[in-house]
């Protein structure tokens, strides 16, 4: 609520100045502005050399910040890339800095914004070793909608020789040779019976 009153009475918010005055200690005659603030201010008013020095100084300050903020393991994006993205944003938005305010909070506000932005953009491509997650990713093999019991039931509806052949090959996993030997018929007959059985099952499944 104090905020509201301050706003409407156009009263500056209580800050250190009033406290200093109340105990009769003179505030510094000119508030010391950081070198960076002066450089950007000069840069914005046309001193190109000052602007360049500001950007170099900003890059130096930001390097530490970026190394701390950027999580490791973003492929194709390192702290120096983030430094450059921040510098470009600073350049594009340099008119949003008010020359009377210190430049550092403004610089770091932009830096934080771009760090979060970079994490959103590049963080999605984080590469993860899938061998740690095999259990979570294991999917039941597709049995075409049939579970074992349904298969048995379907096979049971076949008759005579056909059923024996399909049971032996599909369910017991016997080879054509073994089946032919056991039923004492030719391999050709086993193949014919097997295919006929599968055809009947698939037609019944489709209907």
């Amino acid at each position: 609520m104090a905020e509201l009153f301050d706003f409407f009475l156009l009263r500056p918010r209580n800050d250190d100045h009033s406290r200093f005055e109340s105990i009769d200690v003179k505030p510094a005659t000119t508030p010391t502005r950081s070198e960076m603030s002066v450089l950007l201010q000069d840069g914005l008013s046309g001193d190109n050399g000052a602007y360049g020095r500001f950007l170099e100084g900003a890059a130096r300050i930001l390097r530490g910040f970026c190394a701390r903020k950027l999580p490791p393991g973003l492929p194709g994006f390192d702290a120096e890339d983030l430094v450059q993205e921040i510098l470009m944003a600073v350049h594009a938005k340099r008119h949003t800095w008010r020359t009377e305010e210190p430049v550092e909070p403004w610089l770091f506000a932009i830096a934080r914004y771009k760090a979060i932005d970079a994490f959103r953009k590049h963080g999605k491509r984080i590469e993860v070793d899938i061998s740690d997650h095999v259990d979570a990713m294991f999917v039941e093999p597709d049995v075409s909608g049939l579970v074992a019991r349904d298969v048995m039931k379907a096979v049971d509806t076949l008759d005579g020789r056909t059923r024996e052949v399909v049971t032996a090959i599909s369910i017991e996993g016997k080879s054509i040779e073994e089946t032919a030997e056991r039923l004492d018929i030719s391999r050709g007959a086993v193949r014919v019976a097997f295919h006929r059985g599968l055809k009947i099952l698939s037609e019944r499944d489709a209907s």
Partner: peptide, 23 residues
């Protein structure tokens, strides 16, 4: 690109183009 190169680019951009503004 090297950061030094980028800074040089931004610097020349500031020198040649009017500074961005907002209505």
């Amino acid at each position: 690109m090297q950061t030094d190169q980028l800074i040089a680019q931004l610097q020349s951009d500031a020198a040649t183009k009017p500074r961005p503004s907002a209505v």
